[in-house]
Design a binder for these strands. Structure first.
Length: 428
DNA sequence: TCTGGGGTCCTAGGACCC
DNA sequence: TCTGGGGTCCTAGGACCC
């Protein structure tokens, strides 16, 4: 495999500061200046902290139950994650970014790469400030921006802007090679985008400690120890762009739905209900993208943190022809479940993956196999439109259960301020 | 009691073919 | 069944990201 290198590119990496915490604060000004944390699904661990909470030494990723007392003592505001709210705030932010650049890659819920190639270099920092101010004015979200000739460098620039918000005014521009080297010399390799724990260990063992030292390394040597992924990073650090902006239209390879249970679950019937729910929501996503899937897999596992008998397993099935019909997929999922379920264990998590996608119009059907009939497709369409209008889960399969005792906890969730009429903010 | 969920990309190795 | 090099395709698992 060879590396395709481009010069003279300009990328901007825009990232919202403490995104989940900032979303909570937009609708609750009383939180200004106060420490905030947001918890993962199930209120399991801390997935977002703001600067005020960080200053108190609250660790990112720490389990909530261990930190509960510390949070209380320091009067930290705690929220369960409210993905409906964050998702909506995110799309507002991304809409604004599309006004500022012809090509935008939405990289995650709170980050995007912009292609600013061709812009006048002198004015680019000022342009970035304009982007920040517009986002703040229109959504209330504070952001930082990094500018550089490659994506890896733009991530580093963004990191620098965030670390030194006051000095940088939220924007770091590394288009100048000297300014860039200065930052790289003080940047540890393990913080580089694409260098994780394992790769960093290898680099340290070869006395490559900073981004600057990695930049100076021989790409072929790095390729030997870190594969092609590593040598690409070396080129990117040199300002030679070889990781393209990927466009939003690219299709997904797989759809995953999985979640921990709110409690330990042993009954097959309860796990099956949960699987049916995962399949329903994944199939809905599939239909939204007008795709059919030809492979489904499921997995179950016990709680690895608990000192009880452990078991985990997965199973998959190929479908002769693609489908997006929930009932068919639930049926397959249940067959797989029977293959791997063992009674007597306390299960903690299960999930499903749909993959091997096909565009509906490209489908090759097997002569003997059944494909989705118009009747089934219409049924799906009706169910989707009812659920879209009246809210998720208004109509669902009986297999999904009614009581759903296994459901996750989410005890400190803020209202869906922007997406539900009944939860709009009230001004007295 | 209580430790997230959803993705991508790359490589090694097995199965199969001539 | 074995001999052997060379090739493709597929899958599982690792590493990484937010």
């Amino acid at each position: 495999m060879s590396i395709d290198i481009k010069t003279d590119k300009i990328f901007a990496m825009v990232d919202a500061n403490s995104f989940y915490c900032s979303c909570e604060r937009v609708f609750n000004p009383a939180l200004n200046g106060k420490p905030i944390v947001v918890l993962s699904n199930n209120d399991g661990c801390i997935v977002a902290i703001n600067d005020e909470a960080k200053a108190l030494g609250i660790p990112m990723g720490g389990p909530y139950f261990q930190l509960k007392e510390t949070l209380k003592k320091n009067q930290v505001q705690v929220f369960s994650s409210n993905y409906t709210l964050y998702g909506d705030m995110s799309s507002r932010m991304m809409d604004i970014l599309h006004l500022f650049a012809p090509k935008v890659e939405v990289y995650s819920i709170d980050e995007a790469f912009l292609d600013l190639t061709g812009s006048e270099q002198k004015k680019i920092t000022q342009y970035a400030q304009e982007i920040r101010q517009t986002i703040l004015r229109h959504t209330g979200l504070p952001t930082c921006i990094g500018i550089a000739p490659s994506k890896v460098l733009a991530k580093i620039a963004n990191y620098n802007a965030k670390k030194n918000k006051i000095k940088t005014q939220g924007v770091t521009n590394l288009m100048d090679p000297d300014a860039c080297d200065f930052v790289l010399k003080n940047f540890p390799v393990d913080k580089i985008w694409g260098v994780g724990y394992q790769s960093a260990r290898k680099l340290y063992s070869h006395k490559i400690n900073t981004a600057y030292e990695l930049k100076q390394s021989d790409p072929e040597f790095i390729r030997k120890i870190l594969t092609i992924v590593g040598s690409r990073i070396v080129q990117e650090l040199r300002g030679l762009s070889c990781i393209e902006l990927s466009n939003d239209q690219e299709e997904r390879q797989q759809i995953i739905s999985s979640r921990s249970f709110g409690k330990q679950v042993t009954l097959a019937s309860e796990i099956k209900e949960s699987l049916a729910n995962h399949i329903s929501s994944a199939a809905e996503k599939l239909r939204k993208q007008n795709l059919l899937c030809q492979r489904i897999s499921i997995f179950l596992r016990t709680n690895p943190f608990k000192n009880t008998p452990q078991y985990q397993n997965s199973a998959s099935m190929d479908l002769l022809s693609g489908t997006a019909v929930t009932s068919k997929l639930i049926n397959c999922g249940f067959q797989l479940f029977e293959q791997i379920y063992k009674p007597g264990y306390e299960y903690k998590k299960c999930g499903i993956t749909l993959s091997n996608f096909n565009k509906k119009e490209n489908l090759q059907t097997d002569f003997f196999s059944k494909y989705d009939s118009f009747k089934e497709e219409n049924l799906m369409r009706v169910i989707d439109s009812i659920n879209k209008f009246h809210g998720r889960g208004t109509v669902k399969y009986a297999a999904c259960g009614i009581d759903q005792f296994w459901k996750m906890l989410s005890q400190m969730k803020s209202p869906k301020y922007t997406t539900s009429w009944s939860e709009l903010i009230e001004v007295c």
